[in-house]
Design a protein around this nucleic acid. Sequence first.
DNA 1: ACTACGGCTGAACGGGTGTTCAATAGGCTA
DNA 2: TAGCCTATTGAACACCCGTTCAGCCGTAGT
Lengths: 220, 220
Amino acid sequence: MDITPPAEERILQAALRRFAVDGLGAPLRAVAQDAGVSAGLIIHHYGSRAQLLEACDQRALEVTRDSKQEVFSGGAGVMLAQLAEAERYAPVVGYVLRRLQDGGPLAIQLVEDFAAHAVEYFAQGEEAGVINPSRDPVARARVLTEMALGALLLQLPAQRDQLDLEELPAWLRGYTDALLVPLLELYTVPLLTDSSMLDAYLAARPDADRTTPTTDGKTP
Amino acid sequence: MDITPPAEERILQAALRRFAVDGLGAPLRAVAQDAGVSAGLIIHHYGSRAQLLEACDQRALEVTRDSKQEVFSGGAGVMLAQLAEAERYAPVVGYVLRRLQDGGPLAIQLVEDFAAHAVEYFAQGEEAGVINPSRDPVARARVLTEMALGALLLQLPAQRDQLDLEELPAWLRGYTDALLVPLLELYTVPLLTDSSMLDAYLAARPDADRTTPTTDGKTP
DNA sequence: ACTACGGCTGAACGGGTGTTCAATAGGCTA
DNA sequence: TAGCCTATTGAACACCCGTTCAGCCGTAGT
């Protein structure tokens, strides 16, 4: 029943897994050993280490894009947690975290993706009447996405230098669970008691109001 | 006028700077060259590369602890931005970012520190009547801190693989400025239109209520 | 059956790393 | 002055890394 995939695919999966566990700095030879091939073969198929990472990036992007049915505004973090539940995808989720940690074009791309999706998602919620409108929906979605993703990223150091993919789903679930109540509270009852701070800051810089331009006489 | 500090201190400053610019993986020899000494001397003074990093950690911790006068609930991110304004501290701020990125005990320690300070800060605000109370102030402070710090961390990849310490203050300021309006809005008008989500989730798990224990008949 | 070819290997190369160590220079003490 | 301790160096060592390359092997084509 265990038909082994062709070497090229086996390498990519091993790479995803190993990079997730040990970080993107993991040596090629470790990947090779995991895939049961020689280091040379990786180069033969992918050209170079950098290109192997690119292949991993693309795979990660595909997987995350194919699973953009979030649950609620817990946002990107929750989505990743859900995705990891399907243990088949745990390596990809781990890799995504590592990639966000390490930077590179994909990191930006991913955040962009998630943020764009959040915009759409919030717009739906707004129409349904469960989410309050914003003076700048795009900025709001971006901030919330970056915060959710960033907070998740900040949990990474708490793990050992090695990520345990077996426990990753449980760990992510535990984290999102702990996060959820304070977050929901924050989304329900505002942090600040009145709008004086916002008003003051808005009055101090009468610059951008891209959605509703020109005249608004809201400053008291 | 340019009295050069003793070599040991010069090494530490060079290390802070170089690690901030190139990441914690920067070679010892690069640090040595910046400090105008040989690589061997670094080992002679600090024992090993790992211990040099520990020394950097301790220095960073001291500096951040000595400057914990935040302005408002923009939180840790804003504080770091302010600290970087004093260009003298830019290397330390850069190092802190790199360290948060890389993990390790200090990363946890720093978050802990910031979160603890946020608790205190929020409590003051609550007493002053500008901040709404929370059912779990510690959790709230932690979440907000992790989010602010994490979001900042997520901006790092957007920079090149090298951090430009000259531009770091301006960059941080630009980021916090862009962040501020959406964030203030989020803190003023809640994301969700009603408390149904929070209520539902709270009803589903009648577990922790650490601050006000025993009986509270708040679930409708 | 012979050839050609693509997947694949293992050894080797070249570069970069942290660390060691013998040796030097310089200032303090006796 | 003689001795000694510390700061400092530069070369060397041992290791790990990505990449190269010559060659092996099995299979498909003729």
